[in-house]
Design a protein around this nucleic acid. Structure first.
Lengths: 321, 321
DNA sequence: CCCGGGATGAAACAAATATTCCATCCTTCC
DNA sequence: GGAAGGATGGAATATTTGTTTCATCCCGGG
């Protein structure tokens, strides 16, 4: 799980000086918990606020990212006030100090970078006061959501298109995946079959995989799925295929993967985890898209001329299963 | 003008200590200027990097937001390394210190937050003005998102808990799934194995499945995953198991499923589709959660008394793979 | 088996940063 | 117009945070 540790966060034991001051704020009330509450709080206090405090508050609302990432000194300079003014503003709004005030802006940045309905979810999620199973389920669903979200933000469409191009030209597609990644290969194998695309999964229990590998040529291609800790068997087969000049399309979890180095093209799929168990949802989404994309590419661009610009948005390849 | 002052930024006069160290990095080269360059830089250095440095680098690529917003100490703690290791990593990559390294992540966060609204709009509209592959990818990612969303809205936590209860009591868990649902069984099989829970997948190619079914008793349990059009083999096996009074936990797509009728307990997983191809992301999320939940239930509630309310939110069962 | 040499962890140290204090300035009410 | 109260700026101080140092550990070569 992530976001466990928020430095400068409210809720950690207040330091003595902060505690002393917290009681002395004008409102004498609890500080706003999120950005929206803070905005309202400022609007309400607005009229009763001294000149410089108003100036600082206006700057804060106008440049929230600066507050989140800057230091008291840098912000003060940009807002043309003194650092002490920022501290006073924080106290005035009910915070124990500037750092607490700042953490609201940092949380906001975090949540913005994440997504939207995820934010709602995360806020709601703090209140899964129900059963143990409830917490587990929510944890894994959140991990799945985050994974999908991250994939759609980080996926390099051009790289995906290149992978599709490589696979569309292949005579036979070899599928390599073990252990945790295996379901991805299983699903692609099924989809390729449905789409009448020749694909072979290297998962035989009879140890003949190595012999099958030696039948692959540069005219074929392979899809290798592997995540840390990378299954030795997958690495070895990828190595063999690479040495035989078989184009390699790799789906792996980071640029640090040993597979990224030997790949012709590779895609990053980094899954979130809950309680140490990683999601597979993003990988499965990719494993669903890839075969369809290959089938479409073959329909339109192969064996005819290059990457013709065809207007359709919906694949003609129609539903299976 | 804004963003004039970036604390800890490169480009401001280097402090003496930083200058001294900057020359001593292994590469002796200029530090990466943006996140992508940094990622590549890490990938390149990867093989020559010591163990802890690799560990820190992996954490950095996996949790970029944490690096941006955290402190050296908080990050070190989360990545399970020493703060000094982070400084060493920064030096190794050509930065003058941790702060310079961190500023790359902060800049990235700034940019991300800036373009966030635009991207979100694009995703929601589905107006991917780019290539055909872009449209496909977005379609499948949207389908995955919707599936997860729907599952988290409609899932009946009590029913899930009952399923977990049934499976926790089973001596052996039989896994039944074919075709499109097969990856779910494959994944659960893997997880159960990792968790030392006895599970048997009925997917043998040698036609002995039926004989295995006859070995199941009422003390065991089965998980059947099947979606329309329901694979005949799965239906038949579910029927056999049901007749032998083996408790049946069914994961299927609607109340109309023939499997819902014969199930002891069943869960609804209805996936969205794109271009007729249904997602599997929600099902995989459920398939990830189920084995962990069973393992946890066994740890706490079994063979002791019933569904005791235990307070823990985080499973003691720790990460696999 | 012993001996370097690099890697690692822990803690001391240095720099940066937030916070507080106080003298001064403005404002406003008598 | 003068005094009192709060607001302000600037500098001193306290705290946090990043960095360096050094003793120890681990691994590979002789």
């Amino acid at each position: 799980m992530e976001y466990l540790f928020h430095p400068g966060q409210r809720g950690q034991g207040m330091k003595k000086s902060a505690r002393a001051k917290a009681a002395s704020n004008t409102a004498g009330l609890a500080p706003p918990l999120d950005f929206d509450a803070l905005r309202q709080s400022i609007a309400r206090a607005q009229s009763a606020l001294p000149r410089r405090l108003t100036q600082a508050a206006e700057y804060a609302l106008a440049h929230p990212d600066e507050i989140a990432l800057g230091t008291a000194a840098s912000i003060a300079s940009a807002a043309e006030v003194q650092p002490s003014t920022l501290v006073r503003l924080a106290h005035q709004l009910g915070f124990g100090g500037f750092s607490e005030f700042q953490s609201v802006f940092r949380d906001r940045l975090r949540l913005r970078a994440a997504t939207y309905d995820e934010r709602l979810r995360r806020i709601e999620q703090g209140t899964t006061d129900g059963s143990y199973e409830d917490a587990l389920l929510n944890g894994f669903l959140t991990a799945a959501r985050q994974s999908i979200e991250r994939l759609s933000e980080t996926i390099d469409v051009a790289a995906f298109a290149r992978c599709v191009g490589v696979l569309a030209k292949a005579e036979t597609i070899y599928l390599v995946a073990r252990r945790r990644a295996y379901p991805m290969a299983a699903h692609m194998s099924y989809s390729f079959g449905k789409l009448s695309i020749r694909a072979v999964t290297l998962d035989s229990a009879n140890g003949i995989d190595q012999e099958i590998v030696t039948m692959a040529t540069a005219k074929d291609a392979a899809i290798v799925c592997s995540f840390a800790p990378y299954a030795p068997a997958s690495l070895a087969q990828a190595q063999s295929l690479s040495e035989r000049h078989v184009p390699l399309v790799v789906l792996t979890d980071s640029a640090l993967s040993p597979l990224a180095a030997m790949a012709t093209h590779w895609l990053e799929v980094s899954e979130s985890d809950f309680a140490g168990f990683r999601s597979l949802s993003a990988g499965m989404a990719l494993a669903t898209a890839l075969p369809v994309a290959v089938a479409e590419r073959r329909r339109f661009s192969f064996p005819a001329a290059g990457p013709a610009a065809h207007g359709q948005k919906i694949p003609a390849t129609r539903g299976i299963a």
